[in-house]
Simulated assay, not measured.
Amino acid sequence: MVEVKNVSKQYGDKNVIENVSLKIEKGKITSFIGPNGAGKSTLLSIISRILSKDTGDILIDGMDIARCKSNELAKKIAILKQSNYINVRLTIRELVSFGRFPYSQGRLTKEDWKHVDAAIKYMELADIQDKYLDQLSGGQQQRAFIAMVIAQDTEYILLDEPLNNLDMKHSVQIMKVLRKLADELGKTVVIVIHDINFASCYSDYIVALKDGKIIQQGATENIIRPDLLKTLYDMDINIQTIDENKIAVYYA
């Protein structure tokens, strides 16, 4: 379990995260939703220790992350940020192998390569694994980076807008893979996501943020409600139930 206790973060005089507390259940998918500037990505980065917090505590399985060695933390948490740029010419396979660095320190074993191969297969990249990243579409690059995170084989997987640059087919593929990681392998997945319908259909829990504060958190069916979404997004959103999923209709 991840426990966030009274965490705050300021940039200058602006509170980006303000006194946030939450618990993220193990083996489930938790989505952070909310408008631009809500603090979703900042909170994700603080949980992974990419960003420092100003106040508060973050515990993973009861362990204070502030006291963890970086290499040990990298065996517990994998994170993929929203913008990824590597100034080296790499193939997909080489990129994915970077996910094994916390274990191999660059000297990959047969066991490491098994994880690399499995991650490439998960993301349906086997037929293009020897292509260079600069030869790929944006969607293919995104899938390659997600494969790298999967290869890291951590209990906790944090993804910042993983559906960026993906078409409908591959967006669904990513969400199904994440669902499979949680249901079959017991991974704990936390995602920042803008499409509330993907959050609704694939998440167990949702944390709704606005202006650096948690508006509400809980089981998905308790968050996807017209009144709460209006508070969150300042617009009327009709909710319809389709195949037991709550679908937000906000295009009309």
Rank of each mutant, 00 (worst) to 15 (best):
M1D: 05
E3H: 12
N6E: 14
S8R: 10
D13E: 13
K14T: 09
V16C: 11
E18Q: 14
V20L: 11
V20C: 07
V20P: 05
G27S: 09
S31V: 09
G37L: 13
K40F: 15
T42R: 15
S48C: 07
S48L: 04
I50P: 04
S52G: 03
M63A: 09
D64H: 12
A66H: 01
A66N: 08
N71I: 09
K75I: 01
A78N: 05
L80D: 05
K81H: 14
N87Y: 00
V88W: 02
V96H: 06
V96A: 07
V96C: 07
F98E: 09
K110L: 13
K110H: 11
W113P: 03
D127Q: 14
D130L: 10
D130R: 10
K131A: 08
D134W: 00
D134E: 05
G139K: 03
Q140M: 01
I146N: 05
A147Y: 13
T154P: 06
Y156G: 03
L159T: 03
L166N: 01
D167S: 04
H170V: 01
K176S: 12
L178S: 04
K180H: 14
A182G: 03
K187S: 11
T188V: 06
V189H: 07
I193N: 05
I196C: 05
F198P: 05
S200M: 10
Y202E: 10
S203A: 13
Y205T: 02
V207I: 14
L209R: 03
I215E: 11
I215N: 02
Q217Y: 11
I224S: 06
I224A: 04
L228P: 04
D236L: 00
I239P: 12
D243V: 05
I247Y: 13
A248W: 00
A248E: 04
V249Q: 09
Y251P: 00
